[in-house]
Amino acid sequence: MKIFRFLLPALLFAVISLFLYKGLSQNPRDLPSALIGKPAPSFTLPVLGQESQQWSPTELAGKVWLLNVWGSWCAACQVEHPLLNDLAKTGTVPIIGLAWKDKPAASIAWLKRFGDPYQVVVSDIDGRAGIDWGVYGAPETFVVDKQGIIRFKHVGPITPELMQTKLMPLLRQLQTAS
């Protein structure tokens, strides 16, 4: 009984410590992705630089592809951009750019400056397609599989570690799957 009286505060302390410790390593801005495992929302948006043309994800049906949400105003996008340039050079996967909440002229100038890894860039000037994809900041990157299902989402700049340990294996796995 005496042991119980001594153990109880210790146990309480341990439980509270555990919760607080877990809280330390969690980023409240990382929201759970609601769209994973769901069909990629469709959109029809003008192609950057060729505004008379429209583009829609249906054009990549049956393929594994990457949607990268960025904007010329987004500093973190500059950080991840070289990785996307490298990925584009390997030709592993079509990368589609969603110029999110950006003026087309600014987007074009930015791509000239930092390189253009995108097969197509679509302009989402008023951010509606972004809302449809549950985007709440840039950059965000989605992986869509051959069936058009979103399989992965990353919020924030892609890191070399993420690219090597997660993104590349997933892309390969999805590409070999029927």
Binding site: G71, S72, W73, C74, A75, W100, K101, D102, K103, A106, W110, I125, D126, G127, A138
Partner: peptide, 15 residues
Amino acid sequence: AAPALAQSGPYVAPG
């Protein structure tokens, strides 16, 4: 210097 490179923030479409 960063804002000089680009717009200062996300563009809000007029409307």
